[in-house]
Simulated assay, not measured.
Amino acid sequence: MKPTKELLFTYFAGQATSVQQKVIGEWLADAGNRETYFQWLDEWERSFPQYVPDVSHYLDLFRQRLDTPVSEQMPLVRQLPAEPRTLWQRGSWLVAASVSLLLLAGGWFARETILYNTITTGAHQLRSVSLPDGSTVALNSNSSLRVPRLGYGWLSRDVVLMGDAVFDIRHLANNQPFVVQAANGLAVEVLGTEFSVRSRAARAEVVLKRGKVNLHYATANQPPRNLLMKPGDRVTLDEKGALQLQTRADTTRFAHWRYRLFSFNDTSLREVASQIQTVFGVTVQLSDPALARRTLTGTIRAGSSDELADALAELLNLRVSHRDQSIIFSTPSETQLNQ
């Protein structure tokens, strides 16, 4: 069954029933439908912006300012002091030096804003970005991408990622390389391709779907090294510099977060909790340390942390409680003892 646009809009608004969610999930299982999904998602986000300014209110304020005459006008000519004074009085050089220092400091701290355009996403936000060269980037929740404002496309195409993103890079006539600077000193040099990058403090990850990328990295006590990835390769680099290469990875699960699909393959509940915290910005607690070693395999579709937590609790036969911005997993026996 193909869902209508109205049904998708209901889902984006968080008002879809469990049956409707199942229909949408089955429809998204066909990769050919995902482009339509993103087009409708973009249309819905444009139709329901998070902030709508009160234009009429501020126009009224502006008209009131125009209609209200200024009671006192500033003098056009400033009178000179009666007594002449020297250009540099005692302490003038100190004031001038302080002002100069403040101006330089302000420019130094604002250099990031001047030189780079930083694109960010919130806790529940997915965002698609078109770069000046025609490349596209899909950003996951709680992610940021820093793009140079000056010289992009002819001086360099170096960007900095914190979080999760899928890149679809356009090849330029001047063969300008595209480089993603990720966490733990990992740099991804693109040779015209589609790939995903996870850049978090604990681990960096690159999954190549098509094309080629060249990784530049430095492991502990080793000089910088290169690794040429092939389609289907998955590379992880932890905070200690340990690199792991997995060939022939399952690319059918490529960046499932774009469709709010969470895929697990013998994944521990500790790692699942970390993913929930990263994507949704909530705190996840495991009441019993033994729960951290529980594992699960499968794919869950969830549009919120509460949906994902409830599904996990049902699969693993756990109790879950939602308190403000916290999720607590416990065993049924623990819950009965605490009651």
Rank of each mutant, 00 (worst) to 15 (best):
L308P: 13
H322Q: 01
T331W: 12
Q277E: 15
L186H: 12
L80G: 03
R85P: 00
K2R: 13
V55Y: 08
P84Q: 04
S144D: 03
M162S: 15
I276C: 02
V235N: 08
M162C: 11
P177E: 04
N117L: 04
S98I: 02
S305A: 15
A201I: 07
E239H: 08
T120Q: 08
A187L: 08
Q73P: 00
A309F: 09
A255E: 03
S92I: 02
G298H: 06
L312F: 10
R210Y: 08
T10P: 07
R200P: 00
E307F: 07
A302T: 04
Q39M: 04
L104P: 03
L318Y: 10
S268G: 09
K240W: 04
D30C: 06
L76Q: 05
T297A: 06
G134W: 09
L155K: 15
G303D: 09
G298M: 08
L139E: 03
S274H: 08
N175P: 03
R149T: 01
R270C: 01
H124S: 07
L126K: 05
V320Q: 06
G232A: 04
W88F: 09
L7Q: 14
V166C: 03
R111C: 00
V159P: 11
I119Y: 05
I327A: 14
T267H: 05
L318Q: 03
W27L: 01
G134T: 06
R149C: 01
L228D: 14
P81C: 01
R146C: 02
P49A: 01
L286W: 09
N33W: 09
V320W: 14
P289R: 11
F195M: 00
W93T: 01
L76A: 04
T295C: 06
F38A: 02
A204T: 14
Q275L: 11
Q244I: 11
E314L: 13
A201Y: 09
P84G: 07
F254C: 01
V320A: 04
Q336D: 09
N142P: 05
L61S: 05
L103K: 01
R270H: 13
V197Y: 09
T121F: 08
L296C: 06
A13Y: 11
P148F: 11
T335C: 06
A273H: 11
D60A: 14
H124I: 00
D324T: 10
W108E: 04
V147C: 02
S18T: 12
R260D: 12
Q336L: 14
S326N: 15
R210C: 00
W44G: 02
W108N: 03
L337Y: 13
D310A: 12
